[in-house]
Simulated assay, not measured.
Amino acid sequence: MPWIRSLFFVFTLLMLQTVSAEWGEGWDPIEPPVPTAAPEGKIEVVEFFWYGCPHCYTLDPLMEEWVAKKPDNVVFRHVPAPLNPSWTVHSQFFYAAEALGVVDKLHVPLFEALHDKRRELFDKQSLIDFAVEHGVDRKNFTEAWNSFGVFVKVQQARKLSQRFQLDGVPAVGINGKYKTSATLAGSYPKMFQVVDELVKQESQSK
């Protein structure tokens, strides 16, 4: 009957409006919320990235600028998201560097080597050699890479990426409740506006 089809159309439209009302402008909610690693009273902002991603390379200096000016109550951390198996080696690289306290020495150079110099750094041996090129002890870096602690960190990064329902990088998670990206927000400047607004909202709710 025509009136049944009309009623179904109206019901569907109302349902879509209800769903849309639960989603933000330039961000998606995370349901259920993800527990954060931030101390009590702090707001956690997480950047999910992959070294092989050109968009992540573009975002990296912009994110560093934002981090330099972030509110004092914000705790920021990088998460090298292993969204597929081939990305895992870069997650291991990051966490091995983190374990040795040499992220600042290796993070930007690896991005530059991959995207500016087009170097093929996509396997364990080449990445360890790269760390050695930049003054890191081979034995120490290899041991860190093979350590249980790095294995656990990679698994945690994989699980966190799944809980944030990521379908790509770069992406930013805010306090375990929201995610945004340049795709969702429309541009990098708008993405940072979204991050600032959500950080402010979360700060007011503390």
Rank of each mutant, 00 (worst) to 15 (best):
S20I: 11
R158S: 15
V195M: 04
K70R: 15
V199E: 14
E47L: 05
V34L: 07
P85H: 11
M63G: 00
H115P: 06
V67N: 04
E64Y: 02
S161Y: 08
K69N: 14
W3C: 03
Y57N: 05
L121D: 07
E98A: 12
F192C: 12
Q193T: 14
V136W: 01
G149L: 13
Q165C: 03
Q92D: 09
D129N: 13
P61M: 09
A113G: 01
P2W: 08
Q17C: 08
H55W: 01
P80D: 01
V169I: 07
D123Q: 12
R119E: 14
G186C: 05
G52M: 01
V154I: 11
F48G: 05
A185Y: 01
S86R: 10
Q156I: 11
L100N: 06
E25A: 06
D137E: 08
A182M: 06
S86A: 15
R138P: 09
V67C: 07
P109F: 08
L110G: 03
A96C: 10
Q201D: 13
P85E: 11
L121Q: 04
G168K: 12
P32Q: 00
D28T: 03
V172L: 13
P2C: 00
P54M: 01
I43Q: 02
V136Q: 04
G24H: 02
G149D: 14
M191E: 12
G135Q: 04
M1G: 11
L14F: 13
T36R: 08
P71T: 13
G149T: 12
V169S: 04
P2H: 10
F192D: 13
P170W: 00
I4C: 03
M191Q: 08
P80C: 09
G149F: 13
L62Q: 09
G186K: 06
V150K: 10
A81K: 08
Y95M: 10
F130Q: 05
C53T: 00
G24I: 01
P109G: 09
M1P: 06
Y188V: 14
P85W: 14
S181C: 01
Q201L: 09
V102F: 06
L184Q: 06
Y178Q: 00
P33V: 07
L127P: 08
D196P: 09
V74Q: 06
Q204G: 14
L121H: 08
F9N: 11
H107Y: 07
K159G: 03
T18M: 10
G24Q: 02
P71F: 12
L127Y: 08
A38K: 11
S187E: 05
A171L: 02
L7A: 15
R138M: 02
L62R: 09
H78N: 04
E44H: 07
G101E: 05
A144N: 10
M15Y: 10
K200T: 14
A131P: 06
V194L: 00
Q156A: 12
W87N: 03
L184F: 02
D60G: 00
A171T: 03
V103Y: 02
Q165N: 13
G24K: 04
A81E: 08
C56F: 00
K139R: 12
W145Y: 15
E44I: 01
H90M: 10
L7K: 13
D167A: 15
F93E: 05
K200R: 13
K200F: 04
E120Q: 11
P35L: 07
D129L: 07
F49G: 01
K179M: 07
P80Y: 02
E202D: 15
